[in-house]
Design a protein around this nucleic acid. Structure first.
Lengths: 202, 202
DNA sequence: ACCTGAACACCGTTCAAGT
DNA sequence: ACCTGAACACCGTTCAAGT
């Protein structure tokens, strides 16, 4: 059997992150309180301060964990369609969209400025950069295959990332009109957008 | 001379909206409290409830007012470059970016899901729709001029809007790497992105 | 080192009361 | 109709204390 609970339960830090993710999914960004997170993890409302400097630090940890997951999911898609850059582009973009739809509140925490002094959290910066690096590599594969236009890969990556991001923002905010969503699925809309920067056959 | 103060000062509702905008610019989204807004407007902390059902309703009013201003600014740019669709496209997009940079916190309130039940605020819905309509018209002008590809104007508008939006999100969140921003200005980056969906001469 | 409980300042919201 | 002040539940954070 697993070792007995240590002092409290050994890994409160991760338990708090998981409790935060759960609470976020349940109550949204505005429902995320440190006190409720602590209660969910079964500890007093001041216990989190043994592991996080403040609420922002917990948010940074939740975001960082989210970036790691997103990175893993995108990597799996890249491998699944290895050698087919065009397919990789569309499917990783779709994975991105699905990640956002799976847990909109967490996505907002990661990308909508809930975390205020992001520069102060080195792990957050590292993970978010390696995320962008992933997009750059994807772009390079597609440029080599003649699917995306030539030019500095990081700039083209910024465009592709921006398109997907803008689309997600508008989708999540319900700013895409009914007349559009009635006609096309999110997946079709995403492909329509990506195809505008893709070269060649549709 | 202007009429004496009525009961309190006649238009507390608008005074509260303005106080909110000011507080947002000063303290950011997380610093926006109903009590501070009331205090800024010189009334008790419960006075806002005479004009707004709750904090969300004040946020809706601030957003709606923001949409009206954005609409006006974009309209001015459209008129300034009347008859030059390509120029209109780039300059209105840039106006959009500037609007966001002028007051990032307000922009986040408008577009990053701080307002939670937007459907419940008809004026908000109206203004945000007329904003999108503006983009659709811009796209139609550019399609007629052969600057943007043909196809359903609302879908192409969604693409253009998404690109600008995604760019602003990444810019505001500081997610654009130093190596990119060291090379190009935000203005140049925006143009680079837009040119990827534009046809013809660069 | 990790956790608790009391305490403090701040918040959104309600309600009864005042003009 | 518009505004106030007391009250309540909830929040983030600090601190002294316990193991």
């Amino acid at each position: 059997m697993p070792r007995k609970k240590t002092y409290h339960h050994g890994d409160l830090k991760n338990a708090l992150i998981q409790a935060g993710v759960g609470l976020l999914a349940k109550d949204g960004v505005s429902g995320l309180s440190l006190r409720k997170v602590a209660s969910r993890a079964g500890v007093s409302h001041t216990a989190p301060y043994s592991h996080f400097a403040d609420k922002q630090a917990l948010i940074a940890a939740i975001s960082t964990e989210g970036f790691r997951q997103l990175h893993g999911r995108v990597l799996a898609v890249m491998e699944k369609y290895h050698g087919k850059p065009r397919k990789q582009l569309i499917e990783t973009a779709w994975e991105y969209v699905q990640f956002a739809l799976d847990d909109p509140a967490r996505f907002k925490v990661m990308f909508s400025g809930v975390l205020e002094q992001e520069k102060e959290y080195p792990e957050f910066v590292t993970e978010s950069q390696s995320n962008f690096q992933q997009v750059v590599e994807l772009v390079e594969l597609n440029q080599a295959a003649g699917v995306l236009q030539d030019g500095p890969a990081d700039l083209v990556a910024l465009s592709a990332w921006g398109i997907v991001h803008g689309f997600i923002t508008l989708l999540l905010e319900g700013q895409i009109s009914h007349t559009i969503l009635g006609r096309m699925s999110p997946r079709e809309l995403l492909e329509f957008q990506l195809k505008q920067i893709m070269i060649g056959k549709n």
